[in-house]
Every structure is written in structure tokens, then in C-alpha cells.
Design a protein around this nucleic acid. Structure first.
Length: 224
DNA sequence: TAGGTCAAGCCGCGGC
DNA sequence: GCCGCGGCTTGACCTA
């Protein structure tokens, strides 16, 4: 246990070499110097479990590395296959970054990786998996919505058929029946509570061409 | 212990 | 050819 794979200092049996502590300090300075669009709104977000330290600019030393298989020798195939677990602080910072942008350029990825004391590849994988999770949730919500529409239309169809049967048998050419379909709906995930918010689909509404700002405004209106 | 979660590997595809 | 991404999958870990 406690391989000390280039990770910062921990509590108990976790050990981090002094050179890595110094490296973390350099990383923190580096990240603070970067004008990255990452977590710029940390001011005012202090209550959201972010365990990383703004002052230090990196994951706090006691917070890093509940995982055992990361670090400089990840390429070492002899290392154990123990599963990496990101800490709450790491996940929090990744989530914040993801809420700002679901993709990262190379510089952002590397800076975030340094800041999290992870490899860029790990940050990249996290973002890929996060996008996949978002898409899956979106698909589930879309499915539920379409299912509801389908059930509603079936009910309407049954009702109309019954109504038709009850009509006196007058041979009148039936006009086509038009059913008022529900407005197209746009679903989007609230970045703070991760629940999907349903927006109306008025074509004249900007929701159909929604911007990040307009979505953010909508999020503020829904119940958490 | 079964089922869920999630980091990570692999592969194919498209853009450059 | 390289790179980034999505889709699918695997395997470690967690939890009811």
C-alpha cells in the first residue's frame, strides 16, 4: 500500500516524496498563472463541496490519491490493477470544468491534470466518460418523454375511436382528424443539480437556438 | 452476493 | 499519419 506514485502527501500510511511536494507547489503556481477558463466562478461557490484549495490552486495534499495506480509509473505494466478512484475534490473540480465546457483543449487538459495531480490522459478519459454519462441521461429523459407522448396519443386515439362508434351511423365523409401534438421540447441538464430541465419548444423562442447564457437563466428558475 | 458505478482499454471513424 | 472523439467493453470497487 502507499506506493507513492508521484502523488502528494497523504494521511496515515500515504507517503509522498519531498520532491513531489515541491512539484505540487510548482504546479499550483503554474496553474494560478494560467488564464484558464477553469473554475473562474469559484468566488461565490465556496459552499459546493469543492475540496480543492483556491489558495493553493491544486488538490489539497490530504485530499489526493485515494487511488493506487496513478502517477509516473502508470506505464509500468507490473503495477497492480487496482482501480483508480478520484477523490471528491478532484471530481468537484472536474465537474466545475465540465460545466464550463464539456471539451478541453490540450493546454486546458494539461493544466487541469497538473492541478489535479493526474495525468492528462486521466483527465481526458474522465471528460469522455462524463460526456457519455450526460448523453445517456439525455437519452433516458428523451425516451421517457417520447413514451409519455406515445401513451397520450394512444389514449387520444382510443377516445376518438370510441367517440366514432357512438356516433349515429351517418355516412359522412370523415374529415381527417388532427391531433394537437405537444410542443417540441428541449431538455438540458442543470449543471448544479444534474437534473434535466424541460424547456418549451416555441420556434420563436430562443430556447431552440439557446445559448449558454439563456440556459443558465432557465436553470435558475427550476426547482432543485 | 448480485447489481450498479466508474476509470480505463480498445477500436473505428472523421477531421486536419 | 496523427489526434480527438464516441461507442463498447472490461474489471475493480461499492453497496444494499
Amino acid at each position: 500500500m502507499g506506493l507513492g506514485l508521484g502523488l502528494s502527501i497523504g494521511v496515515g500510511d500515504e507517503y509522498v516524496p519531498k520532491r513531489d511536494q515541491q512539484k505540487n507547489k510548482r504546479v499550483a503556481e503554474f496553474c494560478l498563472d494560467l488564464a484558464l477558463p477553469l473554475c473562474l466562478e469559484q468566488e461565490g461557490k465556496e459552499g459546493m463541496n469543492s475540496e480543492y484549495s483556491k489558495a493553493e490552486g491544486s488538490i489539497s495534499s490530504s485530499e489526493t490519491c485515494k487511488f493506487r495506480d496513478c502517477g509516473d509509473d502508470m506505464e509500468n505494466k507490473n503495477s497492480s490493477n487496482k482501480k483508480l478512484r478520484l477523490t471528491a475534490g478532484q471530481t468537484s473540480l472536474l465537474e466545475d470544468s465540465f460545466n464550463l465546457s464539456s471539451t478541453l483543449n490540450k493546454a486546458q487538459k494539461e493544466a487541469l491534470a497538473e492541478r489535479l495531480n493526474l495525468r492528462p490522459r486521466q483527465v481526458e478519459v474522465w471528460f469522455q466518460n462524463r460526456r457519455a454519462r450526460t448523453k445517456l441521461k439525455q437519452t433516458e429523459v428523451d425516451y421517457a418523454f417520447l413514451k409519455k407522448c406515445c401513451e397520450s396519443l394512444s389514449d387520444e386515439n382510443r377516445r376518438l375511436k370510441k367517440e366514432l362508434q357512438e356516433l349515429p351511423s351517418v355516412k359522412v365523409k370523415q374529415p381527417p382528424v388532427y391531433i394537437q401534438l405537444p410542443k417540441a421540447t428541449t431538455l438540458a441538464m442543470c449543471p448544479s443539480c444534474e437534473k434535466f430541465v424541460q424547456f418549451g419548444g416555441d420556434p420563436d423562442d430562443d430556447d431552440t437556438n439557446k445559448t449558454t447564457a439563456s440556459i443558465a437563466n432557465k436553470y435558475q428558475g427550476h426547482k432543485h
